[in-house]
Nucleic acid binder design. Structure first.
Length: 836
RNA sequence: GCGGACGUGGCGGAAUCGGUAGACGCUGGAGACUUAAAAUCUUCUGCCAUUGGCGUGCGGGUUCGAGUCCCGCCGUCCGCACCA
């Protein structure tokens, strides 16, 4: 071979064409090989891919290619999460059609992804905005409806006044819309809900068992589901309010029932509403509660406020004991039953409330030191202890007391043990055009009528106008007018569309099996699922993953698939970050505008800001396509895998990509340097086999940065080694080791070296276990725990021999000054510690 | 406030079981090659210093031995948030 430079642009295009033509990465359903499903979260077609996509898909690609080399049939598909608001925003701002905008973006981004040489099965590409996807989703929605997992209710919803749509609770962050950032209002609308709460307990126990998920994500899911166990019971009221003689409350601390000082209901509780109907003061108070801010800072400082209704509640264990009933601003209607009883000594909010309104504060749990009923501490005590001042509960541990109170409530028929979840049912109705139409028809005579299966898909009309705010489907002249499938009379289509999280809740099943006539084939889908390794951003740790887990369970529940957890392995990768730059007058500057700390346009010095996630607002983005054109796909891929552990942030740098490019060239020179060497080099053989085993383990653990470091070490060792047959063999094996990471270079080298077929189809090199073990070891010699010398000895020496060798060391002799060590610790093949 | 993660050279990081801290890369220095530059190659690069000493956020502890284990702080980041 001659000494040439690796022409990345030429090689990239050539091998991408070869893989495409041969359909190298098309997954075969009928393959006899063990199957493996590797999936990265599919992108929203926003316009162009960004570095985050490149990092995400490179990681999955390395794993997919590695598993193919290990002899597995790998499903590694790609598609488009193509419905959503940005398309409508583009329509409104630029006057383009959401469909055209989306499909153009898909074409652009697909070309960008192809340019990176990902081992994707493009034959299974799907876009959620096409009827051949969302039509099947409509069919699934109707199946859920048939099985009672979908219901409609009039409910107060979170209305985003900017996006003019309803948001799920999960999409409201600190009282603001998750996309628009606008303050969310409450509105009453008829909405479709999916019964995710029916699976709350199952989703919770399931997540605990997902051992290949990050602990962090498991915990986030657990907290989101938020299971609490306690007691619901009814207080008898001194007067009937709105037809009710009792008020129901929920507590997780029934053990503190004798410490109760008051009862409090939420501002929108029916009792509060009934009182407000006759009391302007109460109505004014409720209005005031609603105005309270919901941001973190505001909640932190907000005063506990109450309105004394004048009504009292009877303590269940003492008919003579009357507790005042308040309307309180800190009680939430949508958690538990919207009413509580307050125990000021043992709950901080109740404590603050009691102080403000001069209510009794009575100790009923002893922390071991104090047990008098008088409570003079500065904050509530909510820790463990023994129940005191509580009649029949006295002396019990709080856990026993909880059980005792629940038992007595159930026996007395005035309460029952209860489990309450923070999780709410999933409201899926959106007043939006660019989404999956909800396949329902409303008939004045027949009511709610599902669209018959033979009329699916309900296709979105193309001719819509975005001239005025609101849902274009609602304003379309003809689309919603339809004959009732049951009675044939005039009826109206549902004009709401599904939350786009529905689209991403089952796409991984459709990837596995995509028949024309149904959402998926059960047997084929089951042959691929669950996804063994799912990779994506931590921003989807709660919503998307929870909804997909629910959707899969729902399908399981109705017998459509025998899988309940869709993703057995999950990995959340870090972000790609970049330095930020600000000009002297405070403008953000793009990396291209800056050279050597100087703004190119003005010649003025720039301020170096923090390293942050690439974002348009900070102008610190680097477009992948330009970089790929400059350095080739392999250099970009190699940089994405180098240095930073994949779960942490990766700081993009010019120096970093150049280093990666240099290594790609260095590998090429290394590959060219293979010759007709003769003889064995056992040390190099060992290094090679250790590297093969180490890189394999690292890739399996997704520790790409470690795999990269090991490959550097091996390359260093080969370059230093004298020519030998071992060296030539090592070089050939390096091609295989780097093939998942820099596949174009590997194919080029493989072909030049006369390799058989494609390296993409080659087998991962076998490891000779005998060569993993060194025959010599370096032993550390410590005196009093400090390193003083090292010795190279044959592996497996006896303790006595190692000790003797250590004591013979010149340095040791000098430090010991003739004294005999009091104690000698020998760790075979590792170290000797002489304690003087 | 609650929960969690993290803290190692100028930088990204490695150290898988408590056993040689700083692998590997980046940056930087010196040299070779070149008319010159780039590329490439060689070599050095934790800190202080003269033998030697000090070093994994800080302070303690356990141990022959601690980046790793325990206790107490400090800092950074993330999630949730009046959840009864």
């Amino acid at each position: 071979m001659s000494n040439t430079r690796f022409n990345a642009l030429k090689a990239d295009a050539h091998w991408q064409q070869v893989w495409d033509d041969a359909k190298t990465f098309a997954a075969r359903d009928d393959s006899p090989k063990p199957k493996s499903y590797v999936l990265e979260m599919f992108p929203y077609p926003s316009g162009r891919i960004h570095m985050g996509h490149v990092r995400n898909y490179t990681m999955g690609d390395v794993l997919a290619r590695y598993r193919r080399m290990k002899g597995m049939e790998v499903l590694h598909p790609m598609g488009w999460d193509a419905f959503g608001m940005p398309a409508e925003n583009a329509a409104m701002e630029k006057g383009v059609h959401p469909g055209g905008w989306t499909r153009d973006n898909i074409a652009t981004m697909k070309a960008q992804l192809k340019r990176l040489g990902f081992a994707l099965d493009w034959t299974r590409e799907l876009a959620t905005c096409e009827p051949d996807y969302y039509g099947h989703e409509q069919a699934l929605f109707l199946k859920f409806y048939e099985h009672g997992l979908v219901y409609r209710k009039e409910s107060a919803v979170n209305w985003d006044p900017v996006d003019m749509t309803v948001l799920a609770n999960e999409q409201v962050i600190d009282g603001r819309g998750w996309r628009s950032g606008a303050l969310v209002e409450k509105r009453k609308l008829s909405q479709w809900f999916l019964k995710i709460t029916a699976f709350a307990d199952d989703l919770l126990s399931g997540v605990k068992a997902l051992e290949h998920w990050p602990d962090k994500v498991r915990l986030m899911q657990e907290n989101w589901i938020g299971k609490s166990q306690g007691l619901t019971f009814r207080f008898a009221l001194s007067a009937s309010v709105g037809g009710a003689d009792t008020v129901e409350v929920f507590t997780t601390r029934p053990d503190t029932i004798f410490g109760a000082s008051f009862v409090a209901v939420a501002a929108d509780h029916p009792i509060a509403q009934a009182i407000a109907a006759n009391s302007p003061e109460a109505a004014a108070f409720i209005e005031r509660c609603k105005q309270g801010g919901t941001t973190a800072a505001e909640l932190e400082t907000q005063e506990k406020l109450g309105f004394d209704t004048g009504i009292t509640a009877n303590h269940p264990f003492d008919p003579a004991w009357q507790l005042p009933v308040y309307i309180a601003n800190f009680v939430l209607m949508d958690y538990g039953v919207g009413a509580v009883y307050g125990v000021p000594a043992h709950d901080q909010r109740d404590f603050e409330f009691a102080r403000k309104y001069g209510l009794p504060i009575r100790r009923v749990v002893s922390d071991g030191a104090k047990d008098a009923p008088e409570f003079h501490e500065d904050e509530a005590y909510s820790g463990p202890g023994t129940v005191v001042n509580s009649h029949f509960l006295d002396g019990m541990d709080i856990e026993d007391a909880k059980r005792e109170v629940i038992r007595r409530a159930e026996d007395g028929g005035w309460g029952e043990g209860a489990t309450v979840y923070r999780l709410r049912d999933w409201g899926v109705s959106r007043q939006r055009y660019w989404g999956t139409p909800i396949p329902i028809i409303h008939c004045a005579a027949c009511g709610v009528v599902p669209v018959p299966a033979d009329q699916l898909p309900v296709v979105l009309p193309e001719d819509v106008s975005f001239a005025t705010p609101g849902n274009p489907l609602d304003k379309h002249p003809t689309w919603k007018h339809v004959a009732c499938p049951t009675c044939g009379g005039e009826a109206l289509r549902e004009t709401d569309t599904l939350d786009t999280f529905a689209d991403s809740s089952w796409y991984f099943i459709r990837f596995a099996s995509q028949p024309k006539d149904k959402p998926f084939d059960k047997a084929v889908a089951e042959s691929w699922l669950p996804v063994g390794q799912y990779i994506g951003g931590v921003e989807h740790a709660i919503l998307h993953l929870l909804y997909a887990r629910f959707w899969t369970r729902a399908l399981n529940h109705i017998g459509m698939i025998d899988v309940s957890e869709p993703f057995t392995g999950l990995f959340t990768q870090g972000m790609v970050t970049h330095e930020t730059y600000k000009s002297a007058d405070g403008r953000w500057l793009a990396p291209d505008d800056v050279r050597d700390g100087i703004e190119i346009a003005t010649g003025a010095a720039v301020t170096l800001g923090r390293v942050e996630k690439m974002s348009k607002s900070k102008k610190n983005t680097v477009d992948p396509t330009g970089i790929v054109d400059q350095y080739g796909a392999d250099a970009v891929r190699w940089f994405m895998l180098s240095d930073s552990p994949p779960e942490r942030d990766l700081p993009w740098s010019e120096a970093g990509i150049e280093g990666a490019w240099r290594f790609v060239q260095r590998l090429w020179r290394l590959f060219e340097g293979a010759g007709a060497g003769e003889g064995a080099d056992t040390a190099l053989d060992r290094k090679l086999h250790q590297t093969i085993a180490g890189v394999a383990a690292d890739i399996e653990a997704l520790s790409f940065n470690k795999a990269v470091a090991k490959i550097y070490e091996l390359a260093n060792a080969i370059e230093k080694a004298a020519p030998s047959a071992s060296r030539d063999n090592a070089i050939r094996n390096v091609m295989l080791l780097v093939a998942p990471m820099v596949p174009h270079l590997a194919e080029e080298a493989w072909a030049a070296a006369g390799g058989t077929g494609l390296i993409a189809d080659a087998a991962w090199p076998a490891v000779d276990a005998a060569l993993l073990v060194e025959d010599e070891v370096t032993i550390a010699i410590q005196v009093n725990g400090k390193l003083r010398d090292t010795l190279v000895l044959p592996k497996g020496q006896s303790k006595e021999a190692i000790e003797a060798a250590a004591l013979a060391s010149d340095k040791v002799i000098r430090i010991l000054e003739g004294k005999t060590p009091k104690k000698v610790i020998v760790v075979p093949d590792r170290l000797v510690n002489l304690v003087a």
